[in-house]
Amino acid sequence: MSLIFKLDPSVGPELRDGLLALWADVSNAGGAVGFVPPVTPDAIRPELLKHFAAMAEGRTRLLVGYEEDGAVAATAFLTFNTHRLMKHWIWAYTVMVHPKHQGKGYGRELMAAVEEAARGFDGIEMIRLTCRGGTGVDRFYASCGYRDGGRVPAAIRVAPGDDRDDITMYLPLY
């Protein structure tokens, strides 16, 4: 069974609540998506609203992976650069797959859908993302074709005494 991906789905209460639940479940399972456990959907809501504001301004696009029953199972936010010298690449943010789907290949499906969406945007030649060191997710992205673009040592403080590298990865689309 595969996920059903939709770019720019209509945002309403059902999608909003599905994204909040996904983000909380991923974070509480140890996923590196901007929070550390324990976290609640209410704590995540302000960050999601920032993503929605960027979508309303046309700076960000939303890619959602749905289960057959319509439940939100995966997501990525694709953000365009506004700097005139960097408009040829986009950022992939808040890339996540629900923990109950780990090991099913949905992460690869999501990254393939991210690439397909990016190829459909005029003038986009590269996707960039960042990930938290010490999680192994950089190896996953590398297996999807992303290259290591550098790291900032100890840039992410997960907890006192637990600093992680901020790793930048990129995927050329040419």
Rank of each mutant, 00 (worst) to 15 (best):
F121R: 01
A118E: 06
V11Y: 05
E14I: 14
T79F: 00
V39R: 04
L3C: 01
L63F: 06
H51N: 05
L49Q: 13
K6N: 08
P153K: 14
D8M: 07
A74I: 05
G120K: 11
G65K: 14
V72L: 08
S143A: 09
L7C: 06
E47T: 10
M169G: 00
R128V: 09
R59P: 03
I4C: 06
A112I: 10
G58L: 02
A159L: 11
S10Q: 14
L19N: 03
G134A: 09
G103R: 08
G123A: 10
G133K: 09
L22M: 07
A112N: 15
P41D: 02
A56M: 00
T135M: 06
I167G: 00
P99L: 08
C144G: 02
E115C: 01
G150Q: 03
A53F: 12
G161H: 04
M126W: 02
L62A: 11
L49R: 15
R151F: 03
G34K: 06
G123M: 07
T168R: 04
L15S: 14
R59H: 07
A54C: 14
R139P: 05
V114L: 10
I4G: 07
R151N: 06
A56C: 01
P41H: 03
L19C: 14
A32F: 04
V152Y: 05
A155W: 01
F80S: 13
N81E: 04
A53M: 09
A71S: 12
G65M: 10
I90W: 04
T135E: 04
D42I: 03
P46E: 10
E116P: 02
D163G: 09
A154T: 00
R128T: 12
L15V: 11
L15M: 08
M86R: 14
D162S: 09
A32Q: 02
Q102E: 11
L20F: 05
L171K: 15
A54Q: 12
A118F: 01
Y106N: 12
R157V: 15
L48N: 04
M86Q: 14
E109A: 07
A92W: 08
A92Y: 07
D162M: 10
Y174E: 15
E47V: 15
Y106S: 13
Y66Q: 08
V26F: 06
G103H: 03
Y93V: 08
V97D: 07
I127T: 06
D8T: 04
D122M: 11
G161T: 05
P172F: 12
I167V: 12
V158Q: 08
R119G: 07
V39Y: 02
G120A: 05
D69Q: 06
P13A: 14
S10F: 13
A74M: 08
M1H: 10
A53V: 13
G134L: 11
D8V: 03
L78H: 06
G70L: 10
T75R: 10
F77S: 06
V152G: 02
I156G: 01
M86K: 13
M169K: 03
E14A: 14
Y170P: 02
D163V: 06
P172W: 06
M111F: 00
R61N: 01
A154I: 00
W91S: 12
A29M: 09
R108S: 13
N81T: 01
V97N: 05
E109C: 05
A73S: 15
Y93F: 09
L20W: 10
